[in-house]
Design a protein around this nucleic acid. Structure first.
Lengths: 338, 338
DNA sequence: ATTTGGATCGCAAACGTTTGCATTTTAAAC
DNA sequence: GTTTAAAATGCAAACGTTTGCGATCCAAAT
């Protein structure tokens, strides 16, 4: 039933030559005469020879697969990143394995362990929200596996990183709100132990300071899902001195805000402006369409993969590179014209 | 620099026993005395031994990775599927490799070739839109690699399949429109050579027939993106006898329709109803929220992966199984109350 | 006729496992 | 003290490659 894979020695027998000659002929080694090369390659084609990658990997001690660990798969930003990774990996002849940490430290631990004994060539990682210990990533490095962090980077480990320009993105967004006349800008944000949260928060704060607006603690909230936003926003609107704009840490949250504002009978953007962060189709489905900071996950994925593959190939960029991919403010209907 | 991986023979030397004993001790073979087992396992832990999967795979002629080919990565339905696949694969100890066909036959060909020489244990595939030849998939089967199709299945190849209940989903959706008073229901659809397109179309047609509504060719359009819908819909609304409802083959298209209808100054759902297909966050961001047929991609992915892994493990389900995962109509704001 | 010296090719080891079989050790039975 | 069976271990081949080195061959140069 199970037809055996045809191997190099099958070809050798067929042609009455040695396996070494076949091996060399297959890769056009100069030692082999054009005649045998031709013979071997024809025979290989005829028998439908496919090199056994496992044997090859074992022999060479190499591996052509890279792993990407992603907190969530069904997520515009992260799936864009994976797309970018797959794209360059494919072109470079690498296979990509996908793992989902589910925002869980435990799971992340299991994944990294399985990666090191799968002997992958490299791994691209973004921390889970839970993660606050980093030995498992150090262990990856210790096992001579290349590692680069993207987005949710790990400052404890020295290795390459690629991040999105959260600070500048947030700053630009808030400045846009200010330029279009907003004075009291609320900020909905994730827990601040995450780097990205911290950076966006700083962008928000610095934009306010730069334009001499007061920063008010009561306008900053921990709120990063649509559901939370739908619950929180009515209360915020009922404040004595409610905000005239909302800046949300992601688009899902922004859609929740938008919904709540409409429910309250207020107009967007005439009464209140909204700006999101993240990008994706969601923003276009809103009415009015959502002004948001586009993150270019695809670019993040591509540059991270390039960095990793370069390291695997031994191309050195200096010991420790840190790439930042720019964000872009997409001005649409939830903010006023200037 | 590069500290060598510790192997089974390292342990053997350390303990002055043979590699075979170490190998057996590590897996608690009954032939080995509890004393040596304990010794070996302690030593393994101490030296941080990690089995070399490549060597193991080569020896056993097996492989614990499965591949999933997906037409697009940044896509709610497909990423949900991938999530499901990763979930069960992880639990079963399999790694998943991800490939994106980009809806291109050429790319699909390259992918399948690289898969067969990577000797993966199995592959999950959904056809690209371009694909109309199937030898490359037959080739996978010929190389003793397990194969199961999901969603965009291939009827030319006999193997397991898991699909979404397109026919029933479409039928239910259209019946819902009819029950809420719609008489002239337009259908926006992908090119009909795709199975899913064909099935949804049949569901649409049969619902009309069942309720004695005329089927009118001029109400059926090839249109499956937001952009196309934004361009086409105004023309459709300008017809002599315009439709009072739209059924779209996916939610992106539905959002385009919604946009165009609002632009035309008509009300949804009072004047015109809309129903989409696909699910995801998009539907909730719309105003009003989009009534749509939820596809449960996560379930599709899970059952497909289970099927595949069972086949890999040699569990036989009968020769050729065909799973259908049910859809669910999510009634929201773009259709009227009954 | 002998020596060179490329040009071709084959031998065998190596990568890290697993496993059938042979071998040694142990301990019990005589 | 010998035999015997069972328990514990080791030998070596195998999985499919690659590659350093040595072997062979043939033509040209001496």
């Amino acid at each position: 039933m199970a037809k055996k894979q045809v191997t190099i020695v099958d070809i050798a027998k067929e042609l009455n030559i040695s396996p070494s000659t076949v091996s060399r002929a297959l890769k056009n080694h100069p030692d082999i005469s054009k005649k045998t090369v031709k013979l071997v390659q024809e025979c290989a084609k005829r028998l439908n020879y496919q090199p056994n990658i496992m044997a090859l990997n074992l022999r060479l001690g190499k591996n052509n697969t890279i792993a990407v660990i992603v907190p969530e798969i069904v997520h515009y930003f992260f799936s864009s990143i994976v797309k970018g990774v797959e794209e360059v990996a494919f072109d470079e002849g690498f296979n990509v394995m996908l793992f989902r940490s589910k925002e869980s430290y435990e799971r992340e631990l299991k994944i990294t362990n399985s990666l090191i004994n799968a002997r992958v060539a490299g791994v691209l990682a973004s921390l889970s929200k839970e993660t606050d210990k980093y030995e498992h990533f150090q262990k990856i490095l210790d096992n001579n596996i290349q590692l680069v962090f993207y987005d949710r980077i790990c400052i404890g480990i020295i290795t390459d990183r690629v991040v999105v320009d959260d600070y500048a993105g947030a700053m630009t967004a808030v400045e846009h709100l200010i330029h279009t006349g907003c004075k009291r800008i609320a900020f909905y944000c994730s827990p601040t132990h995450l780097e990205i949260s911290k950076n966006r928060r700083n962008g928000y704060l610095d934009a306010l300071r730069k334009h001499k607006l007061p920063v008010e603690k009561e306008l900053m909230f921990v709120c990063d899902t649509r559901e939370q936003a739908m619950e929180l926003t009515p209360k915020v609107l009922a404040m004595d001195n409610p905000p005239d704009a909302f800046f949300a840490i992601n688009d899902h949250t922004a859609t929740g805000i938008l919904y709540a504002i409409k429910q309250a009978g207020l107009r967007v953007p005439e009464d209140i402006s909204i700006c999101g962060f993240s990008g994706g189709d969601l923003a276009l489905a809103c009415d009015p369409m959502l002004t948001t900071v586009e993150q270019h996950g695809y670019e993040v994925g591509k540059t991270a993969a390039k960095l990793l593959i370069d390291k695997i190939k031994g191309v050195t960029h200096g010991q420790f590179t840190n790439r930042i991919v720019k964000t872009k403010l997409m001005v649409r209907g939830t903010t006023r014209k200037v």
